[in-house]
Amino acid sequence: MHYLLDPLQFSFMQRALIGTIFIGILTAVIGTFVILRRLSFIGEGLAHGSLAGLALGYLFHWDLYISGNIYAISLALFIGLLHEKAKVTLDTAIGILFSTSMALGIAIISTMKVYTTNLTDYLFGSVLAITRFDLAIIIGATVLILLVLALFYKEFIFYAFDTEMAEVTGLPRSKLHFAMLIMIAITVVIAAQTVGVILVTALLVIPAASGYQWTNSLKYLLVLSVIFGLTSSVVGLYLSYYLNIASGASIALTAASIFLLSFLFAPGRRGLKRSLGL
């Protein structure tokens, strides 16, 4: 028991634990919709693309969280608009905008003369650096997004399962699409705090993909995703503490281990590609 409680004597570990619990829940729920809509690539694209937002924030001494969030939301909206107006596939729109955005981020970072520790925290994750302000944003965003999904649950499910018929019955397809993109963007930036932008897809996709191996029921899938997301985050955090490895890496590796076990032992397992929302 003292293995569990000892780390919590430090206030930074208390904040880290609370933060990872909320992020574990948020990424698992949003991740379920990401794999159902086969949007895995957008999680990856927004995470990498948000580098430019973080670099801009760093350059102008803005709060990295807020600048990262605003940038990622704008990027998500641009991707959605390019997909709708320019008649390119969503994957192509993501490919164009995320690589451009990442190039912009690298260009800005390369002009910086000082080694930017704060920025590398976002690249590789630094859950132990979570401040009280960060925690307030994590909890606020999680509650807000879960509330939106709960209130419009049946509409988002209809949109995810059969977009055309959802539109026929009068649901606002475009609004649902953009709302989903915005929620993914916020989740990506929030989760980047723990696992870093490079590994954020791990938390977004792997817990839901693991849950997908075990059930054919949407409700159980959501519950299992949350259980696996929470387990990955909390176990990963403790492993990071005791083994002294980067928190992002230990969380992602824990999630991957759960997926491997699910893939090998779940009765009705699905193909690897579909499970990962591709």
Binding site: K154, A160, F161, N216
Partner: peptide, 12 residues
Amino acid sequence: NFPISVYEVVML
């Protein structure tokens, strides 16, 4: 592979 039952589809 979409995890939805016949009943839930009709409820849509």
